[in-house]
Structures are given as structure tokens and as C-alpha cells.
Amino acid sequence: MLYTINTSPFENSTMETALRFIQPGDPVLFLEDGVYAVQAGNRFSETILSLLDKNPVYALTPDLEARGIGSVTDGVFGVDYGGFVDLVEEHQPNSWL
């Protein structure tokens, strides 16, 4: 199952709630304001690194660029819209809004 998280972890607990349900191996895609979670060196970096131990983590590149995020936590893959479509085709999406 593909988990998509589109809200900033600085504004609400959506990411933390989603993390309780994510199973090992499930890909996680951060998009819209959710990309703030994967910015390198912020207070969520350790959480993202822990998630990366068992899950592939992606961030939508156009959303990173739109928010001026140039550096992401090591191991997070940037994907464009085509990559987003590929992930949705490969995995059943589960959106955390």
C-alpha cells in the first residue's frame, strides 16, 4: 500500500498517526505541504531516518521546489509527476490528509 502524506508535520499530527499504520515495505510519498517532513536537518529528520530503515520514502519534486526545499534527508527519493503515477499504479494508495 502506498501512503501519501500531504500535510505539514509542523501543523498537525497526520504524519505521526499514519506512521502507526504503515507496514514494513510500504512506500511513503510526501507531497504538497507534507514535503516539509523530509527537509534535511529539521526536527523530523530522525523520524524519517527511522522510517527509511524499513520503507522506501519519496517526495514529490515539484512540491519540494515550490517550497524552496533544496536538501532532503538522506535516502529520500525525489519523484516527478510521472513517478507519482508509477507509484499509484504499483501500489494501492492510502491518503493521509
Rank of each mutant, 00 (worst) to 15 (best):
9 P>C: 04
9 P>N: 09
9 P>F: 03
9 P>W: 03
9 P>Q: 10
10 F>S: 01
10 F>C: 05
10 F>P: 05
10 F>A: 09
12 N>T: 03
12 N>G: 14
12 N>K: 07
13 S>M: 10
13 S>H: 13
13 S>P: 15
14 T>R: 09
14 T>F: 08
14 T>H: 12
14 T>Y: 11
15 M>L: 15
16 E>W: 13
16 E>A: 08
17 T>M: 15
18 A>F: 10
18 A>I: 06
18 A>L: 06
18 A>D: 15
19 L>Q: 08
19 L>A: 13
19 L>N: 14
19 L>I: 02
20 R>F: 14
20 R>S: 15
21 F>Y: 15
21 F>I: 00
21 F>V: 01
21 F>Q: 08
22 I>Y: 10
23 Q>Y: 14
23 Q>A: 11
25 G>K: 04
26 D>W: 14
27 P>C: 14
29 L>G: 13
29 L>V: 01
29 L>M: 14
29 L>C: 13
30 F>N: 12
30 F>K: 12
31 L>V: 10
31 L>S: 10
32 E>D: 12
32 E>H: 06
33 D>V: 03
34 G>D: 09
34 G>E: 04
34 G>S: 06
34 G>A: 02
34 G>H: 02
35 V>E: 12
35 V>G: 06
37 A>H: 04
38 V>F: 11
38 V>K: 04
41 G>S: 01
41 G>C: 14
42 N>H: 06
42 N>Y: 10
44 F>T: 00
45 S>C: 10
45 S>A: 15
45 S>F: 12
46 E>T: 12
47 T>M: 13
47 T>V: 07
47 T>I: 12
47 T>P: 03
48 I>Y: 05
48 I>L: 08
48 I>N: 02
49 L>N: 01
49 L>F: 05
49 L>E: 00
50 S>F: 07
50 S>C: 11
52 L>Q: 07
52 L>P: 05
52 L>F: 12
53 D>Y: 00
53 D>P: 00
53 D>N: 09
54 K>A: 15
55 N>D: 07
55 N>M: 09
55 N>L: 05
56 P>Y: 02
56 P>D: 05
56 P>S: 07
57 V>S: 06
58 Y>K: 07
58 Y>T: 00
59 A>Y: 01
59 A>T: 01
59 A>D: 10
60 L>S: 02
60 L>G: 08
60 L>W: 00
61 T>K: 14
61 T>P: 01
62 P>Q: 08
62 P>D: 03
62 P>S: 01
62 P>W: 03
62 P>M: 10
63 D>A: 03
63 D>I: 05
63 D>M: 04
64 L>E: 04
65 E>Q: 11
65 E>S: 13
66 A>S: 09
66 A>K: 08
66 A>P: 09
67 R>E: 06
67 R>S: 03
67 R>W: 07
68 G>I: 05
68 G>P: 10
68 G>H: 09
68 G>K: 13
69 I>A: 00
69 I>E: 11
69 I>W: 12
69 I>G: 00
69 I>N: 04
70 G>E: 03
70 G>P: 14
70 G>L: 08
70 G>M: 04
71 S>M: 13
71 S>Y: 14
72 V>T: 07
72 V>E: 03
